[in-house]
């Protein structure tokens, strides 16, 4: 069991490392004049030279990656315009456009994204599973048809349109205006400022979850072991919620994990339209200003999140399904 975890962890780390090398090569080693790009339109030869020196762009490729890696582990210093800027470990680079270390920028943005995605996940998982299970239990009834019908309708509208509509019509009217306050600072303001984003992300995804859990529950309720449970004389409620749900929701939990990972790296629309300063917006702004170090940093953080979530799901699964447990 432990060996399995270690093996999985080792493969996860190697995937992250491969991503790091590949994205570094794509952004900074490709013959695309990274210095000019980073330096921006008001570039002076001095500033260009500073950037080139700070990034060690004159060094051989391997050495550059070595410096970058060392920065992640031990931190590094950037010398720009004669002043030295500290970039503490884990240093993911320095944004010359914003004048701040990338790690700091991401550290500011990550809690926002995490709050949006995890809060949204709570909404879509609970609503989706609840409605899906009810629809499966009352298959073929009006309730079922309404659930599946509205689920399909919601899913047919492109996500950014839903976000736009909520931002235009619902916030400030029925929902509090979207804004980010730190949870530690003021939990109430945190919740009310994110409510619009949670509901939007939550309800649109709940539509898919309704269908997943409905299909999964219908399958599980049709299994022989559910019939066995009924033959024991236990209540229908216990048959459905203990025997049916236990088997029916295990695959859904896996999808939730993958969705959370995907959304953590794809909250672009939600954040831009609601004006929440999360990872998605940070990345989008970096795109607009050709801020290569920020882009590189967010790609790395994104891939780490994805790989870690996958690892967590695999480990979680061995707890959920005894058949997957390894000796």
């Amino acid at each position: 069991m432990l060996l399995y975890f270690l093996r999985r962890a080792a493969s996860a780390i190697s995937v992250i490392f491969a991503t790091l090398v590949a994205s570094y090569a794509l952004f900074l080693l490709a013959p695309t004049d990274p210095v000019g790009t980073i330096c921006g339109p008001k570039c002076t030869p001095d500033r260009a030279a500073d950037i080139s020196a700070a990034l060690h762009l004159e060094d051989p490729a391997l050495q550059q990656i070595g410096v970058y890696l060392k920065g992640i582990v031990a931190g590094r210093e950037y010398e720009i315009g004669g002043t030295v800027r500290e970039c503490d470990a884990p240093c993911l680079g320095y944004s010359f456009a914003l004048g701040r270390p990338v790690t700091e920028l991401i550290a500011d943005a990550l809690p926002v994204t995490l709050s949006i995605v995890l809060g949204g996940a709570v909404v879509y998982f609970s609503v989706g599973v609840l409605v899906g299970t009810l629809a499966a239990r009352h298959r073929g009834t009006t309730l079922d048809r309404v659930a599946v019908g509205s689920s399909l309708t919601i899913n047919s509208v492109p996500y950014f349109i839903v976000v736009l509509l909520v931002a235009l019509y619902a916030t400030n009217v029925v929902l509090p205006a979207a804004q980010y306050t730190s949870l530690l600072e003021n939990p109430l303001a945190w919740a009310s400022g994110l409510l619009a984003a949670w509901i939007t992300l939550g309800l649109t995804n709940a539509a898919s979850y309704t269908r997943y859990s409905r299909a999964s529950m219908i399958e599980s309720l049709g299994q022989d072991y559910v019939r066995t449970a009924r033959s024991k004389g236990i209540s229908e409620r216990r048959v459905v919620y203990r025997h049916g749900v236990r088997a029916g929701l295990t695959p859904v939990v896996t999808i939730v994990g993958l969705d959370i990972a995907y959304q953590l790296t794809n909250t672009l629309f939600t954040e831009s339209i609601f004006g929440l300063p999360g990872l998605g917006r940070l990345t989008l702004n970096a795109f607009n200003t050709y801020d290569l170090p920020v882009l590189l940093g967010s790609v790395l953080v994104g891939s780490t999140v994805l790989v870690t979530m996958n690892l967590i799901i695999d480990i979680l699964y061995t707890f959920l399904d005894p058949r997957v447990r390894l000796a």
Partner: peptide, 20 residues
């Protein structure tokens, strides 16, 4: 009645017992 007065053994014990 079920499970006390009358009980049933099913055909395929592989699928008739809950795997979890």
């Amino acid at each position: 009645v079920r499970g006390v007065e009358a009980a049933m053994i099913f055909q395929d014990p592989q699928s008739s017992m809950h795997p979890y």
